[in-house]
Nucleic acid binder design. Sequence first.
DNA 1: GCGGCTAGGTACGATAGCGGACCCGACGTT
DNA 2: AACGTCGGGTCCGCTATCGTACCTAGCCGC
Lengths: 245, 245
Amino acid sequence: MKELRQDTVRNVLLRSMNSADFDDLVPHLDRVVLKRRHTLEVANRPIEHAYFIEDGLASSIARMGDDRDIEIGVTGREGMTGVSAILGAGQSPHMTIMQVEGWAWAVSIEILLTLLDASVTLRQLLLRYVHTTLVQTATSALVNARARLEERLARWLLMASDRLGGNDLRLTHEFMAVMLGVRRPGVTEAMHILEGYGLVRATRGQVSIIDRGRLEEFANGAYGAYEAEYARLMGSTLGGAGRRY
Amino acid sequence: MKELRQDTVRNVLLRSMNSADFDDLVPHLDRVVLKRRHTLEVANRPIEHAYFIEDGLASSIARMGDDRDIEIGVTGREGMTGVSAILGAGQSPHMTIMQVEGWAWAVSIEILLTLLDASVTLRQLLLRYVHTTLVQTATSALVNARARLEERLARWLLMASDRLGGNDLRLTHEFMAVMLGVRRPGVTEAMHILEGYGLVRATRGQVSIIDRGRLEEFANGAYGAYEAEYARLMGSTLGGAGRRY
DNA sequence: GCGGCTAGGTACGATAGCGGACCCGACGTT
DNA sequence: AACGTCGGGTCCGCTATCGTACCTAGCCGC
């Protein structure tokens, strides 16, 4: 692990870091396998570690009573968890759990905060990343209020594809229904609309994006703001499947 | 203005600052009167100033096409604008405009960033505040997806009361409809529900909160997470009308 | 190649909120 | 006192989505 080279990691934040910051961080990174439903952050409990995701998908969830959850953000290899701890809040009222299994580099918050205090450049990078998560959450608020289900589904598929890599996603309707906070048959219906326009093709337990460009258009403003900010500030696209903004 | 004393300002962030940070900031503060609809931040344009609100209400708005706006956050004397600039992003895809006129202390972003780099304590305070705005935005995402209109109205009234001070708000249904992103008659209906439970009383152009405690309960989880985080991290309640969490 | 499970398709009535229109009453102006 | 304007109340039919239920088809294990 102490042999870790910056050009071999997949996590975009780790790759974007200046090499001095990376070298300071490496000795404190632990490789962690993250199974589905593994809880990275518990609501209102101290955050112990930040995770630089290498593979898989984590989502942040806000809760309003037991059966009224909603996903407020999703993180893959473009980002990290532990944003509230970076901001010095120690914990947050939201939980973060793995939705698609994978693995990550974990670092204790205590150490990360020390490194952040010591390095202006690391601070700059991670605070800019915090800004992009703010944009992502704001977009969630926007689309939850204003977009139709099929637009939200389009957005979610695009985001998942960006983070997992590739255009073929192994996801069930049931799963996407939970992510979007809607009924399962609602997803089926919305998916048929996307299929009707030839944007995606769905088979049992799998969705393939057929025409990414038109899917982005179809999302009609639900997708793109976060991605543009990410590109502007991280100087790197999200590493989806051959994309440009 | 250079005579400004910390215990005479109303803005909670300015009051909470340690006195050295406050003294460094004061020479750079300009008193600015902010009329209704004054634009504090334009979407995707460099943010020039941060504003510590002393009176009035600003809201941050995300847009998805011309007629699909939504308020993603609201700021009064408990906070400040310019969060994305503090994070080093320079600008953001959202706009911020005054909804209830008032005034604020403005500081140029350039100077604020310099002060932030120089002071750990100032950085701590403002980054913690950034965390609370993240919670506020996440709660907007949550309630837009999950709460009924009357719950969202309850939340909004409570937030407005916290920020403007007092239980009597001079607001029209039309105005609240724009804030909540719903039809005006929808607000009328929702308001009747709140009145029916004896939680508020509404007369022409005015809403009075009658039973704040039960209004919070009625909001049913739509209100409280932000406020609890604010109290936890800022060590100060929001200065509403005699409240406890 | 049969049984059982899981994912997906469909259908039905219910409901929240929409878009738009219309009316009425309160209030300020002259 | 009369008028005009603005804020609020109400009503219509409409649409998106819900909750629930039931059915079908693909897939796995044996």
